[in-house]
Deep mutational scan, measured.
Amino acid sequence: MDGTRTSLDIEEYSDTEVQKNQVLTLEEWQDKWVNGKTAFHQEQGHQLLKKHLDTFLKGKSGLRVFFPLCGKAVEMKWFADRGHSVVGVEISELGIQEFFTEQNLSYSEEPITEIPGTKVFKSSSGNISLYCCSIFDLPRTNIGKFDMIWDRGALVAINPGDRKCYADTMFSLLGKKFQYLLCVLSYDPTKHPGPPFYVPHAEIERLFGKICNIRCLEKVDAFEERHKSWGIDCLFEKLYLLTEK
């Protein structure tokens, strides 16, 4: 054995408090879109979701699917093309516009009456609605409950000090017999300040354990050449399924 860690023996890093005071403002996230600093976007979609999607959907149609901090995630069109209703929230209007443009979807925009100064973008087909606002303002819009949440790049982007508020927001959107698919990253948080932030299993239990059954479905090596600039040499991604207790 050469000592290389595999996707099945990932350790939890003990120094989980080192990132707790890290803060990125909404304006800084918007600047990332304006300046093209969106390496977190996956042009081909998320491979773990693609692998498990049909198993999760079980042939159902007409589900309501929520994408927190959606950006221009191509997976939104995957669900819409399968007959589901997609709702996303994203602070960057540019990111939302790029989604519709890159997916060749016509759309309209209208003000969100409950949140002055914000807009919702709706596909002409009517099954994709993307709200351009802070996720913490979203419950004011009465958008209803969801059958499924796809959380990739959301919890790991939320400032650590806001995670409890974020989890409570997610709980307010969950319908009966929900499936909450959650991706988190595992790396040494003493070497990279984030975002994306390190979210250990214990944190998921703390945030969601009282209401959800929590199961880790898969762990994969997600390290890429660009991650060397973070000062790390190891990065794993974990896919969790959260269901109603």
Rank of each mutant, 00 (worst) to 15 (best):
E114D: 07
L182M: 10
I143M: 05
E43G: 10
E17S: 09
L239H: 01
T243V: 05
D81N: 08
A157D: 15
K228E: 12
F208D: 00
G231F: 02
I10V: 10
L63T: 10
R64T: 11
H41M: 11
R5V: 14
T113A: 07
S85L: 10
E28P: 03
Q97K: 01
T101V: 14
K238W: 11
K60E: 03
G144L: 07
E218V: 07
I158S: 02
S85G: 03
E12I: 06
T4M: 14
C165P: 15
E203G: 04
V199T: 06
Q97T: 09
N142P: 13
T38N: 08
R64L: 03
G153R: 12
D81P: 00
R140Q: 12
F208N: 00
H84M: 10
A222C: 14
L173A: 02
G231L: 07
Q22R: 14
K228I: 07
K176H: 07
T6C: 07
N213T: 07
L239S: 06
G194L: 05
E225F: 13
V86K: 01
G45H: 09
G161N: 14
C216K: 15
M170Y: 00
R163E: 01
S129D: 07
A167H: 01
Y107E: 02
C133G: 06
R64H: 14
H46A: 10
D137L: 06
K20T: 14
S7L: 08
E244V: 05
L242V: 07
I211K: 12
Q19R: 02
C183S: 14
N159M: 02
I143L: 13
A39Y: 15
P200L: 01
L242R: 00
Q30M: 12
K122S: 09
D2F: 06
A222R: 10
Q22V: 11
G126Y: 07
C132W: 04
V156M: 05
K177T: 12
S134C: 06
S106C: 03
M1S: 09
V23D: 04
R5D: 07
N159W: 04
G194W: 03
A80F: 04
K77T: 09
K245C: 06
V199W: 00
E17R: 10
C216T: 10
K72A: 08
T4V: 12
H41C: 11
Y240P: 00
L8Y: 07
D54K: 02
V184E: 01
N142I: 11
P111M: 12
F99V: 02
T4E: 11
T4F: 09
L182D: 00
A73Y: 04
K191L: 12
E244R: 08
K210T: 10
N159G: 05
G3S: 13
L130S: 00
A73R: 05
N21D: 13
I10M: 11
R206S: 02
E218P: 03
P139A: 11
D188K: 08
Q22N: 15
G153E: 06
H227Q: 07
S92V: 03
T169D: 02
Q97L: 05
C183W: 05
R163S: 01
L49I: 05
D147A: 02
A157M: 09
E244D: 04
K145A: 06
H46E: 06
L24W: 08
S14N: 15
S14R: 15
V120F: 10
N213I: 02
S61P: 12
G175K: 14
P195M: 02
R152T: 11
L94G: 09
E205S: 09
V86Q: 00
V65P: 00
W230D: 07
E237K: 01
F223R: 06
G36A: 13
G209Y: 11
T141S: 10
K119L: 02
P139E: 11
L185I: 09
E225K: 10
L24V: 10
G3L: 13
K77I: 02
V89S: 06
Q30R: 07
H227I: 10
A154V: 01
K51S: 10
L239P: 03
M1W: 11
Q47V: 15
L174M: 08
K210P: 14
I135W: 08
Y240E: 01
L24K: 13
R206L: 12
P200N: 15
A80P: 02
E98G: 10
L69Y: 05
L235P: 04
F99T: 02
T4Q: 07
H227T: 15
L105W: 05
L217W: 14
E224S: 10
D2V: 07
V120I: 06
G88A: 04
D9R: 05
K145G: 10
F197T: 04
K58V: 15
L49S: 07
C165M: 06
L174V: 09
N142Q: 11
L63V: 10
K20E: 08
R215W: 10
F136K: 05
F136R: 03
V89R: 01
D221A: 09
E12R: 10
P160H: 09
P189K: 03
E225T: 10
G59V: 08
K228R: 14
K177M: 06
K210D: 11
Q47D: 08
L138E: 04
E90R: 03
T25I: 05
T101E: 13
D2N: 14
G161S: 05
L241K: 13
E43S: 08
E12A: 12
A167Q: 05
K164E: 13
L174G: 04
R5H: 14
Y187P: 04
Q97A: 09
I112A: 06
E218F: 09
G45E: 06
T101R: 12
Y166G: 01
I143H: 12
S134Y: 03
V184M: 04
E114K: 09
H201M: 12
I10W: 09
D151C: 00
T118W: 03
L182A: 02
W33T: 04
V220L: 05
G3T: 14
S85W: 08
S92A: 03
Y131A: 01
K191C: 12
Y166L: 01
H52I: 12
D147Q: 03
S124M: 14
Q179M: 11
R215T: 11
L94T: 12
I135P: 03
Y240T: 01
G209Q: 15
T141F: 12
V86G: 00
I211E: 03
R82K: 09
I211F: 15
H84A: 13
L48G: 11
H201K: 15
V34E: 07
S108V: 12
D31G: 09
V87M: 06
L69I: 06
G194K: 13
K119V: 04
I128R: 01
F79M: 11
Q42R: 09
P189D: 01
T16R: 11
R140P: 05
P193V: 04
D168W: 05
M148Q: 02
K219F: 08
R152K: 12
P116V: 11
P196I: 07
S106H: 08
P111G: 11
G36L: 07
E12G: 07
E110Q: 15
V199K: 02
I10N: 07
K119W: 04
E205I: 06
F99A: 02
K32L: 10
L235Q: 15
N21C: 13
E17P: 06
